[in-house]
């Protein structure tokens, strides 16, 4: 029985950071990550009719984003494949081994770390979602983006003491939430 509904008006505020973080940890290119997130939202708009309501909005959007990321890698791998044809076998000591195969896989070491970081990122964004909009915005700018106090105060038109009150409340709420879900 369908239980979830789509509300595209809230998508950017609610999910853009989460989707962006998910993407950048996989493509390592900020501009490309932004494009993929935008493509995901556009594709989601086009396929709204296909949404059955069995999964949450977030899960549905992530499913679309995953396909976008796969398409992106398919594209760059097809270019890479053309380049690989020009590489020769290293026939001196190891007959028939591709040069590539002799290099240790850099992703192998960090696979578990990446998985844990994904889950942690997920937990942080879920907690951030629960904060009031202003608290979430100030916390994000100060803690995740690392902006200085003056810049945030100018951008949001608040005083420094106001900022620290908001930060204090946000940190308390985040710590409470993370204690339940992660610590």
């Amino acid at each position: 029985m369908p239980t979830h509904k789509l509300n595209p008006d809230n998508w950017i505020n609610k999910y853009s950071d989460y989707l962006f973080n998910y993407t950048i940890s996989r493509v390592n290119d900020r501009e490309m990550a932004k494009d993929l997130v935008q493509d995901t939202f556009f594709a989601a708009l086009k396929s709204m009719k296909n949404f059955k309501g069995n999964a949450s909005e977030r899960t549905w959007l992530i499913a679309i984003l995953k396909r976008k990321i796969i398409d992106y890698y398919r594209k760059i791998n097809s270019k890479k494949g053309q380049a690989e044809v020009r590489m020769s076998y290293n026939a001196e000591d190891n007959d028939g081994d591709w040069l590539e195969e002799q290099v240790a896989d850099p992703y192998d070491k960090t696979a578990e770390d990446d998985l844990e970081n994904d889950e942690l990122g997920d937990a942080i964004f879920k907690c951030l979602d629960k904060l009031p909009e202003k608290q979430a915005s100030v916390f994000r700018m100060k803690t995740i983006e690392g902006l200085d106090t003056e810049t945030i105060c100018n951008e949001l038109n608040i005083t420094a003491s106001n900022l620290w009150v908001i930060i204090h409340r946000a940190r308390n709420a985040m710590a409470d939430c993370m204690e339940k879900t992660w610590f």
């Binding site: 950017i12 973080n21 935008q38 708009l45 942080i124 985040m174």
Partner: peptide
Amino acid sequence: KLTHTIKSSNINCLNNSEKQHLQKQFKQEL
């Protein structure tokens, strides 16, 4: 503990201007 956890997660997010740009493009598409 909270500071350490957030630092170790290496999370990234869009800045305000990037988000506003995305919002604008999205509204046009909508």
